[in-house]
Design a binder for these strands. Sequence first.
DNA 1: CTAGCTTCCTGATAGC
DNA 2: TGCTATCAGGAAGCTA
Length: 274
Amino acid sequence: MPELPEVETVRRVLQPQIQNYKIEEIIVLCPDVIKHPSAEAFCRALRGATVTEMTRRGKFLRLHLDSNATLVLHLRMTGQLVVTPESFPREKHTHVVFKLSSGQELRYIDVRRFGGFWLLDDEESASFPGMKKLGLEPFDPLLTAEYLSARAGKSRRAIKDMLLDQAFIAGIGNIYADEILFYTGIHPQRMCREISRQEWTLLAEAIPYIMQWGIDTNSVTAEEYLRGMGKEYRNTPDLRVYGRAGNPCSNCGALLLKVRIGGRGSCYCPACQK
DNA sequence: CTAGCTTCCTGATAGC
DNA sequence: TGCTATCAGGAAGCTA
């Protein structure tokens, strides 16, 4: 599932391939993925618009247009966004195709169809519920031990659950939440109110560090990205705990455990994480 | 405020 | 081989 580092990778790869090109035609193969407005109005409003910039906020991607509107996209679990030559065979779960003035196609592929698009005018953008309540970006200098403990320090929620809360910090998903907690030596089930000042400081440092590490290890060329059809943008071999339950901890050799926290599988080292 | 559940969806995998 | 059951999960919406 794409989290902030993967979404950032998509942005970096695709921005040069869509920036300053016009969307000449839109083909909606599965109207379900158009969340706002209707598929018809979506196509009508987008046709002829030029993409001026591509940005990211949390796990959302935004295509800024020259028409005072923004195309917002969330990949959720299995969404993929790729730019391909027109002649490329269409993947099975291709739901939207944007024909660009470059002659290429921007395609949205999503096996589980959890993701989707919102086309918002400036007014709607400002009040868009999905983005309005997002917390700080991991790289925001305001993300300090003070911010973290002020926002979460009194909560009885598990720290793992809190890290996944997009209103707390934007962009952390299940994989990197586990990695951040392993890095800081904090047990995922610890209540936020039991987290010490020193540990909040550690978290404030680990959150941007692990996110940057994710971006760095995910780095791919446009060719590699296209070869994987927008999937091969993550280097999982380097993950320390996620998906490794039952295997020895890379730090101490103890067997990694898996528990459910807030309905999500959580891997951790019982020896390294207190 | 919070915990806990359900919903959306398909593919991979396990068990028989 | 082929069936069914289970699981994976981001985020919203709901109840208690």
